[in-house]
Design a protein around this nucleic acid. Sequence first.
DNA 1: CAGTATCCTGACAGATACTG
DNA 2: CAGTATCTGTCAGGATACTG
Lengths: 129, 129
Amino acid sequence: MDNEENKDNFLEWHCSKHEDVSNCMEECYVKQVLSLFGKKYVMPIIRALLIHDKLRFNEIEEKLGGSPKTITSRLRELEALGLIRREVFNEIPIRVEYSLTKKSKGLEDIFERIAIWAKNLKTVNQNSG
Amino acid sequence: MDNEENKDNFLEWHCSKHEDVSNCMEECYVKQVLSLFGKKYVMPIIRALLIHDKLRFNEIEEKLGGSPKTITSRLRELEALGLIRREVFNEIPIRVEYSLTKKSKGLEDIFERIAIWAKNLKTVNQNSG
DNA sequence: CAGTATCCTGACAGATACTG
DNA sequence: CAGTATCTGTCAGGATACTG
């Protein structure tokens, strides 16, 4: 009934306009964002940059332990979304520094909420399991 | 300095206790949750169940268009986290109904925030790109 | 130093056939 | 109907060597 309509309203977060989910999966921002954040190294990169403000490629690679290809890939994806900034210094040897942009600020709040929710989830599961 | 310490406090969402991120990646709830939500069909399943309250395996499969193996896998993962309930009715032919549990309620808020954030992100990128 | 190029492996998802 | 079993293809990611 209009119960269904109400639900569609708060379903802003996932392609509220179409019931056709296959279509939905291609373009949903939320899914794209979650997909990226679920990828290996993305959250650790963000976290490391929150802690250290600026990090060089080398430092990130060492902290996270991944192969350069994967780290580069993640950094490019985050840069493409405008979440991190890449600064190149023409020195010898070359220096590149990564840092978070203003856009990433909203993430702290989101991640914190997820953390709280996830912790409750774990706790409840342990108690009732 | 203690600037660093302050940061560690609000970094609750990602293994605030260890600087060793490689270790972190194994056990971080937040990453696990994001990882799951980024997987194919997970968000569409949650969305479909938010809209329809109860759905049978068949219905989910048809709406999402995936192979039974993948859908089953996702449903099991969500069930293991306690996010969805699986009810079996011993009829012939057998009937199984899936629905969201109370635990998944917190997700609406989280997803909505992500949606808002993601939309702003897109908008800003379009304007400045 | 900050990556790129290359090769390789394993996990994931699709398609299909089959079962209680 | 609600899955499981199997086989296959794709692709993310690891390891390594190399370059501006």
